[in-house]
Design a protein around this nucleic acid. Structure first.
Lengths: 253, 253
DNA sequence: CGACCTTTTGATATTTATCAAGTAGCGTGG
DNA sequence: CCACGCTACTTGATAAATATCAAAAGGTCG
């Protein structure tokens, strides 16, 4: 489904939260030509092997990067929410080395590469900010690698919940300490290298420890500090410039 | 140990292998001020939390990025060899979210950030190439995540050996199908989320399957094709523009 | 030679996966 | 309104993969 132009303010907000943007830069960003598309769970936005000529900015919803291994397992590399451009790398790497799919109903702004190239050429600082975003993505991959490689199932799941809480909080989308998106246990498992059954048991354990409340796909955090401890979670890897509200008073950052 | 200026041709070669560099760009790269340092195994080049004002180009040797988890385990995120700038991200991300240490005796060219900033400002295409390098790093992290998350121990180890073979071959450093650097089994384990003992058993299995020959820390590949099959290895994630010699005739890429 | 690091092997424990049902909620069509 | 099908969650039983513990053997280098 395709509708008309809509505003790219989530991107402006995100980039501006790090280094202040000049008026011209904001104008140039808002001027990017784009097409807004509503997409549904299961849709694959970009396939491994594709050579995209456009990138997608998420305005709302939840997407993930993933790859299917030779044994047919889905490894989710990261979750992506409003303000993210999960396929930004296609600007510089011709071939996609992974796929991107829609997990929850989402709204995307599709931005042609040439517009981004022009923007970067005219505003090198904006280019640097976009580069920075891809570096933060890389930092998240590394953290997940530590998770899957060297943390227990309990830690991993606590960790990924903490990450999502913080990322949504920074966007101001956290209400009532409840994640604004639903997540299936099998998605969590595919992200953290765990079987669905085991995720289920660990979620039960997190509930019994009074760290979270989870009802179906909804997750509410009861004890963020405890969750961070169990998850061996330090938000430094997210490279935030602004202290998330939920961390105020916890002494982190 | 610090010696005088030495040439940065490994970097020129690496960046030039993707998009041809103009004469001015080559000159600007070679003109980067830098200090050459020889470093020894165990040295930590950059600590998690540091705010570096310089980056290091590896001229020779082997380094790794890693992080120590709360349980004291070392997760190695990537191996870095000649031509790599493992801490390039520090140019845009103030705080290091991980550490970088020396695994084998190595030679580094230490390049101040301001030189790189000037270079990028004067030659935006070089900036784009450097950005691209960091994206390839990200791709490797994702591949390792798939490894650790969803592949068997046998696959993982075969996979990482394939990666190193290809990367050294591209540099022209592969002789006799033998990795030019030694690697301990505990390093392999820390990289792929396996215990030392288990790595040992899997290496034995790879030997018994006549895929590799390994004598102490030396690894020789006997059957790359078989190793790639077992390792579920597809070099696409390395985003190479030039077909490695070892893959000639295998139909890959 | 002796210290130290790496590899190797055996025995055992733990974690996590797999297999197999069964339950709960939710939207749809009759 | 109810039956049906679908998806997600839950639980139990068992199996497989991998970790841990312990010890010894092999290399290397001063």
């Amino acid at each position: 489904m395709t509708s008309s132009k809509r505003d790219l303010s989530p991107l402006v907000r995100k980039l501006g939260s790090e280094t202040p943007l000049s008026e011209e830069e904001v104008a140039a960003l808002m001027d990017l030509s784009s097409i807004v598309r509503e997409v549904s769970p299961g849709e694959i936005i970009v396939h491994e092997g594709d050579e995209p000529s456009q990138a997608c900015l998420i305005l709302d919803g939840l997407l993930c990067r993933y790859k299917i291994t030779g044994q047919g397992a889905r490894q989710i590399h990261s979750f992506h929410i409003a303000g993210d451009i999960p396929d930004l790398q296609s600007l510089l790497l011709a071939h996609m080395d992974h796929s991107i799919s829609v997990l929850r109903p989402s709204v995307l702004a599709i931005i042609p590469h040439h517009g981004l190239h022009q923007l970067i050429a005219a505003h090198p600082d904006v280019g640097r900010m976009l580069w920075r975003e891809t570096l933060v993505d890389g930092s998240i991959f590394r953290e997940w690698l530590s998770n899957v490689g060297h943390r227990s199932a309990l830690s991993r799941i606590a960790h990924v919940i903490c990450e999502l809480v913080i990322r949504f909080d920074v966007l101001g989308l956290l209400r009532d300490m409840t994640l604004p998106i639903r997540l299936t246990q099998s998605e969590i498992g595919d992200a953290q290298g765990l079987s669905l059954v085991h995720v289920n048991r660990v979620m039960k354990e997190l509930r019994e420890k009074h760290l979270i409340k989870s009802d179906g796909m909804h997750i509410q955090i009861l004890d963020l500090k405890g969750l961070m401890t169990i998850g061996d979670f330090d938000p430094a890897y997210l490279h935030l410039h602004t202290l998330p509200k939920v961390l105020c008073g916890t002494g982190t950052l």
